[in-house]
Write a protein that binds this DNA or RNA. Structure first.
Lengths: 292, 292
DNA sequence: GTTCCGCATGAATCGATAG
DNA sequence: ACTATCGATTCATGCGGAA
């Protein structure tokens, strides 16, 4: 099968109109922050940010599949010693457009920007807002499972006491079945806090987010062959990661320099041989602990 | 000097009216979350939450000193598969009352509630919204400095590379000076993300938040002898911690059982001998690392 | 006195079932 | 149809007792 990467140069408000309805599985993007990147994007002032962004989210709502997800990486900046409220207003207005605000993930930055101010500490987190078109959407939770902590070592030895009691106190629904779910597991489901480091020493371009960020959401919300869209492509992190993970992608960028750069880094069509099974099924953990 | 703990039984909307203007240095509270604790607080429905809470924040604005801070611990719950927006609306409305929304801290919970759902992961964070009455407020940053982790060890070794380049690239403002600030320090300023565990199996009372939470903000925003207020006292964590830290405190609680319990645990007046110097000045870190 | 191990439990959320 | 109640799910922590 071939994996495509379609790149467009221009204003995403316009370009998006050419993308068909219900065709995208995941939108992952980090729009220009208000009043930031003045030299490149022209700097959208905080007080007009919501009005500027809403026509775009309206198009995104159209192109997203009903089972798809929109993940918006954003953080309001400090204006005049105070956090702006445009992100709050944006969430409220997007709900009026028809979006469901399913969840707010936190990107807890391991290494945040240094600095010292008299009235605040360093900002070590950003929002990752999850919006959906309907209440039932695709989610592949097993793909992002993480190694369990020390818990497991001690846990599975004690099954005889607590867990029996707790489960026996409830009617029916076998105790044995519940436990058997755990035996074969070295992995646990993650939480809604992502603890990643920002990438610093990059190849010339300063990515707004580390590759681990789109990678995690692409794993979670798409499968190979699905379509991923980033309407504010920037240095192309989302699209590069998507291609590496065998997902089709669309990228839109208004700055010619960025556009050209990504075009050179990415192949328009990339042939891959699909594995018969996704990774998490192949990597079946061994049974190491027995019930006593 | 004597440290007081004034406890009141009743509805904080009413009780607050008896507290003088501009008399409190820090309000730290965790109000009943919407639709939670139905059996105790009566359960405020999400759609009336803002209207219910705004009269209280109006009183808090009055009793707070101009240099004071209001820290609000809150997290919206999931309603019908979607995050509610009442916290967003509350922030917007509080700004209209005259509050400055200075910052949003994150409490990253080390141990969050377990569970598995098809559409979301476990919720591992809560908001700690910082509001102020004016743009210049008291903040004692040195009090919450944290031991430098491995960061410093590795950091100071690399000075010759990254940091030299970085600082030399800037005009003036000596490279040597910046570095020398670090050498004598084993402590670093924290970020706006707090990584604490919830206390679970405690002495009978289940606190909504761990003691470390009010402790951190009391250190940061007050000095000994200042006044701390919690209008939703609950199990009294804020007041107990405040007294231990030699701060006067006021607690308001509507449930008689909770009120009586805290009354037994806390002394109305507590005599303390003030130290001549705050702790952080006494504990001067050793010089351990040299520049190469 | 340390270290290790067992144990209870938590500002949760979903889906099915009952009123 | 719409709301209230209830059972099932699941993991890190800190305490207390044992080695």
């Amino acid at each position: 099968m071939d994996i495509k990467a379609e790149l467009y140069l221009g204003d995403c408000t316009e370009i998006l109109k050419n993308i068909p309805d219900n065709s995208v599985d995941l939108v992952f993007t980090s729009p220009p922050y208000a009043d930031q990147r003045k030299s490149t994007y022209g700097g959208i002032a905080p007080d007009i940010y919501v009005d500027w962004f809403l026509p775009i989210t309206s198009e995104l709502l159209r192109v997203l599949k009903p089972s798809g997800t929109f993940v918006l990486n954003i953080k309001e900046k400090v204006v005049n010693g105070e956090r702006s409220t445009y992100v709050m207003e944006l969430i409220i207005e997007m709900r009026k457009q028809g979006w469901f605000w399913t969840e707010e993930f936190i990107w807890h930055k391991k290494n945040c920007y240094p600095g010292k101010w008299p009235n605040r500490f360093r900002d070590a987190w950003e929002r990752l807002l999850q919006f959906n078109k309907s209440k039932s959407f695709s989610m592949y939770q097993e793909e992002v499972m993480v190694p369990m902590g020390d818990w497991k070592k001690t846990r599975l030895k004690n099954l005889s006491e607590t867990d029996k009691i707790r489960d026996n106190s409830k009617v029916g629904s076998g105790f044995g079945k519940n436990i058997s779910n755990w035996i074969d597991r070295d992995m646990a489901y993650p939480t809604n806090v992502l603890h990643l480091a920002t990438e610093c020493s990059n190849k010339n371009h300063s990515a707004a987010f580390p590759e681990g960020l789109p990678e995690w959401f692409i794993k979670l919300f798409t499968k190979p062959g699905d379509w991923v869209l980033d309407p504010f492509m920037g240095s192309g992190t989302t699209n590069i990661v998507a291609q590496r993970m065998s997902r089709n992608s669309i990228g839109i960028e208004i700055i010619p320099e960025y556009y050209e750069k990504v075009k050179k880094e990415i192949q328009p069509v990339h042939y891959v041989l699909f594995e018969p099974k996704p990774d998490y099924e192949k990597a079946q953990p061994e049974r190491r602990y027995a019930i006593r």
